[in-house]
Design a protein around this nucleic acid. Structure first.
Length: 734
DNA sequence: CTAGGATCATCAATT
DNA sequence: ATGATCCTAG
């Protein structure tokens, strides 16, 4: 029997209101996951078949957590679908997509893959890449898909605007390329599922019957396509429970439509609205600050978080001279705390952009502070991993031209651009795929290498039904000589790559083991496993790999931190231009700034006990020092909750006056202790070219040098960071 | 024709 | 720092 007495009144209502549409407005830290998991357990207890319940979360990590918690309440929870929108759609499409003209072994293209195809399309249409930059075009196409606007519809919509008509042509061709390759991009995973239900009413009916109870977490971050999908599925039984917080909507740039949550009561007129405003996470001081900041936003439903956790300490505010100083302060604070019995894992530094991690990482390394970095180049984005996966993708879906193009000369086997163009032309003429074109080649001498490649791939394919995925991957790595090439090249990068491939192999082995456990025969062939494996790895997010058990400081972006909490939080880089970003500051509409403010709200509310915000008066932008002013969000926090932080004792000794400027060179000497040039020397820098050194000034671990460049004039840049090198010949070559 | 080196642009957040 | 593109040698 489930014990509801542990829940507050509002949480209890959320659990017990199982029928009809429900909107739960759940503030940060208000125990919504607890309410949701209890709600599922409650449904199960009321004899609702687990088969009829689906819960949709934002990340795989959240899904895993929710599943675990449900399972611990009721073992039947195992059979409830708990997954992200994307995984749920993949699961449905793997079964059903043949109804709308795709094959069920479709490939999923990530953003990088999609961009390559767009680029090709622009070229093929003889459009100027200057006017159609890949990223922009990709963004437009993606947002059309998010809004369920098809290529044909888009062409209609933009009639008369010749530039947009060009974009529409790219969209149409891009979509054709995907269809030909039997591939879907991330957006398609949603839109094709919607299309499937539109075109096959009986199928829709089947899934409506199946999912009689639907729950959607982080509803404020759903886009229009996801909204339609949910609406469709819930149409019949109306048992839709959405949970969200309009103040935490931070994915507008990705197509999330904040109206979905703001308009829920209009879309479902009989919806029950439940507010969770009691916060169990943070101190009252932190909540007061967060409430004050978010109150500056105009478009919100409005709510005020409160807690009975007590006031707690004030929010620390540290002003540093530069990013190194800011990072040094963070490092010192952590060391002090750990010395007096704390752990590293209590801490997280959450920043606006990934580039901000650099300074912090540097300091952490110097101080031997263990940390775990999220973001940057993700595991499944690395070149070597994508190479190996491209082999598997090509084997799984022979129509996947992009993967074939990636591997045909990787590792180098003497097949160059010209040859590839020849095959592509042939494929084009015949209207066949790249691999079919390879098969059709006449077997004369000049095609020898191509034949060898084709036969090797066929060999792998023959092996697939009788080997495990691990064995297949090993065979690919060996027979292609991919591993051998890496091992021969003994650079640190190659070593890294080998390690990553090892890690991939262990993941595959894990996957094998799980599949074997689930199957009756105890053996699962690579052929039958590939679909599931490739689908899964295409959808892993960085945050999905976060292990709380590890004793390390967490470094991640504010976006990744959504849904997480930490006892002690740092928010570094609170300066105008970084947070909020210049882009949203300069935009004419207020939406961008409001979203930045919500992001700030998310950041503040991650902290349980202590919160430290900081800024630096100077920071590097592309190697140039730039002076900074405090973020406007700092001024929005009432001064009574803030306290200027004192730097660590060590540095305090050297402080002049009462400023918080830390000693510039607080840390043990790094590699760059001196420069190999002096004032008056000629130097070279990769971006600016040749220049004459005017002045040199120590700055943290580096030197700030003033150089008069031949082309671009006077610049102040950091010597080591921007790789300023001495120019061997001191006379300009006139 | 291909491989490898030099040079140039880019860089917000992510399923 | 990374990828794309251009150039040159073999």
């Amino acid at each position: 029997m489930i014990d509801l007495s542990q829940l507050n009144d509002m949480q209890q209502r959320a659990v017990e209101q199982t029928e009809g549409p429900v909107l739960i407005l759940a503030g940060a830290g208000s125990g919504k996951t607890r309410a949701l998991t209890t709600r599922v357990a409650y449904l199960l207890e009321k004899d609702v078949d687990p088969f009829h319940i689906i819960a949709i979360t934002f990340t795989n990590k959240a899904a895993r957590e929710m599943r675990n918690r449900i399972n611990s309440l009721n073992p039947l929870g195992d059979q409830v679908w708990v997954s992200t929108f994307h995984s749920a759609c993949v699961r449905i499409l793997r079964r059903e997509i043949h109804h709308i003209g795709f094959e069920n072994n479709f490939t999923i293209y990530d953003a990088e893959d999609a961009e390559k195809i767009i680029k090709d399309c622009v070229k093929e249409l003889s459009l100027n890449e200057k006017y159609y930059p890949t990223k922009k075009v990709m963004g437009i196409i993606s947002s059309q898909k998010d809004n369920l606007v098809s290529a044909a519809q888009f062409s209609q919509d933009v009639k008369g605007d010749s530039h947009m008509e060009g974009t529409a042509c790219i969209y149409r061709l891009y979509q054709k390329r995907l269809t030909d390759a039997n591939a879907l991009d991330f957006d398609d995973l949603i839109t094709k599922t919607v299309e499937l239900f539109d075109r096959c009413p009986d199928l829709l009916n089947r899934y409506q019957e199946r999912f009689r109870y639907i729950m959607v977490d982080e509803y404020q971050d759903t886009n229009t396509a996801q909204y339609f999908l949910v609406r469709r599925l819930a149409e019949k039984y109306q048992n839709l429970c959405v949970v969200g917080d309009d103040d935490q909507s931070i994915y507008g740039w990705r197509g999330a439509n904040i109206r979905n949550i703001l308009d829920f009561e209009n879309d479902f007129p009989h919806a029950q609205v439940i507010r969770l405003e009691q916060n169990y996470r943070s101190t009252q001081t932190i909540l007061n600050a967060a409430n004050a900041v978010i109150a500056h936003n105009a478009s919100r439903k409005g709510k005020t978080l409160w807690t009975d956790n007590g006031d707690g300490p004030p929010i620390q505010y540290f002003k540093a001279y530069d990013e190194q100083g800011e990072a040094a302060f963070i490092a010192q604070t952590i060391l002090d705390r750990v010395k007096s019995g704390g752990t590293y894992a209590e801490f997280a530094a959450l920043y606006r952009i990934n580039a901000q991690s650099r300074a912090i990482e540097d300091q952490f390394m110097h101080h031997n502070i263990p940390y775990r970095l999220f973001g940057g180049v993700r595991f499944y984005q690395r070149k070597e991993i994508k190479d190996v996966l491209a082999y598997l993708k090509a084997l799984n879906n022979p129509r996947d031209d992009l993967s074939y193009l990636r591997i045909i000369n990787t590792p180098k086997r003497g097949i160059g651009d010209a040859t590839i163009k020849r095959i592509q032309a042939h494929a084009h003429e015949q209207g066949i795929s790249f691999s079919e074109a390879l098969r059709d080649l006449p077997s004369d001498a000049r095609n020898k290498r191509l034949h060898t490649f084709w036969e090797m791939m066929e060999g792998f394919r023959g092996f697939m039904p009788v080997c495990s995925l691990t064995e297949l991957t090993r065979k690919v790595l060996n027979d292609t000589l991919y591993l051998k090439e890496l091992l021969l090249d003994e650079t640190p990068e190659s070593l890294d790559r080998v390690e990553n491939i090892d890690a991939l192999l262990s993941k595959i082995a894990e996957f094998d083991a799980e599949a074997e456990l689930e199957s009756a025969e105890g053996f699962v062939s690579a052929g039958s496993e590939l679909d599931a494996f490739l689908g899964e790895v295409s959808l892993v997010a960085d945050i999905d790999n976060y292990q709380e058990r590890e004793d390390a400081v967490v470094l991640m972006t504010l976006h990744s931190a959504k849904g997480l909490e930490f006892p002690r939080v740092f928010l570094p880089g609170m300066v105008q231009g970084v947070f909020p970003s210049f882009r949203s500051m300069n935009a004419p509409e207020p939406e961008g700034m409001e979203e930045e403010r919500r992001l700030c709200y998310v950041g503040l509310t991650r902290a349980k006990e202590s919160l430290t915000i900081s800024m630096s008066k100077s920071r590097l932008r592309n190697g140039e020092a730039e002076s900074c002013v405090p973020s406007c969000f700092i001024e929005e926090i009432p001064a009574e909750y803030l306290r200027d932080a004192r730097p660590g004792r060590k540095r305090q000794l050297s402080l002049r006056g009462k400023t918080n400027v830390p000693e510039r060179r607080a840390m043990p000497a790094p590699k760059q202790t001196e420069l190999d040039f002096a004032v008056g020397d000629w130097v070279r820098q990769i971006k600016y070219g040749r220049g004459l050194v005017i002045a040199i000034e120590p700055a943290g671990v580096d030197f700030e040098v003033t150089v008069s460049f031949e082309k671009s004039g006077l610049k102040k840049i950091m010597a080591a960071l921007s790789k300023v090198k001495k120019e061997p010949k001191s006379e300009p070559a006139f």
